[in-house]
Design a protein around this nucleic acid. Sequence first.
DNA 1: CACATTAATGATAATGATTCTCATTATTAA
DNA 2: TTAATAATGAGAATCATTATCATTAATGTG
Lengths: 144, 144
Amino acid sequence: MAFEEEQRIFDDFVRNKGLKHSGQRRDILLTFLKTEKHLTADELHRLVKKRNPAIGTATVYRTLRLLGESGLCREFRLDDGAARYEHLYGHEHHDHLVCKSCGNLEEVVDPKIEKLQEDLAKKHGFKISSHKMEIYGICRKCRN
Amino acid sequence: MAFEEEQRIFDDFVRNKGLKHSGQRRDILLTFLKTEKHLTADELHRLVKKRNPAIGTATVYRTLRLLGESGLCREFRLDDGAARYEHLYGHEHHDHLVCKSCGNLEEVVDPKIEKLQEDLAKKHGFKISSHKMEIYGICRKCRN
DNA sequence: CACATTAATGATAATGATTCTCATTATTAA
DNA sequence: TTAATAATGAGAATCATTATCATTAATGTG
């Protein structure tokens, strides 16, 4: 609940880059860590303002970039084009099941698919640096 | 080279919706069909202007939407967030190998992966409507 | 063919997300 | 405590996309 490990990672990152600490960044980091949802910058900003109403838009974006660089978060986009942010620490690589009805994202992994993706790339002489997969549809809950 | 089939599909679509034909739409359609690249709206607009310099931005976007509705094109987005458009007629479902060096997109399919994706969804009680997969890395050409 | 109807167009304004600028404030190391 | 400099927030700027609207063009009818 206190996210000591993540905070330590971020502190180290800030220190190593010769940056300074700030209360705003801590507020944003803790708010980000506290939800498992895949939020947009604006949605995160709204949440952060409950904790600290003075925080500006630019600071949210700037901090999100730093969280990305420090390996704590990852930006991704679904087909709607909106940038969303998800936890990276403690979340190994995974793909998403996206419910088009309720908007929920489920994280999934299938090692067999991962392997086949590598084979496919290799067959085309392609050196993989990353990959993503999304399955869109209707989730179990929404099917009733 | 004349894309009769695609033009017929679009004409039928326009007629069935009670819309009207226009030279601008034909210019945009033909320009779109003539390239196998995965263009953004702006890139397509530049190309179209070589054929008809008077065509406006809004018309390109409006036509792209109609091409989507008529099943001739599909909008998609890579991780850079830019909307791109690709041919749908004569291009069955496929995934993309995206070269981060030259930006080239290669279209690929692996039936085994497709099958496993369906199994994975089923296992989670998920009813699939569509799915996408992208592999990012360096293509064969750029590796030298 | 001429006409009335109505869709299409292009210029431009508006929007929404994100980034930039800059004067002010806060953090840090000495 | 202070000097150096990074961080902040407000608001301007940007970029892609969409909406508005007066004008133009396509269509079906007689």
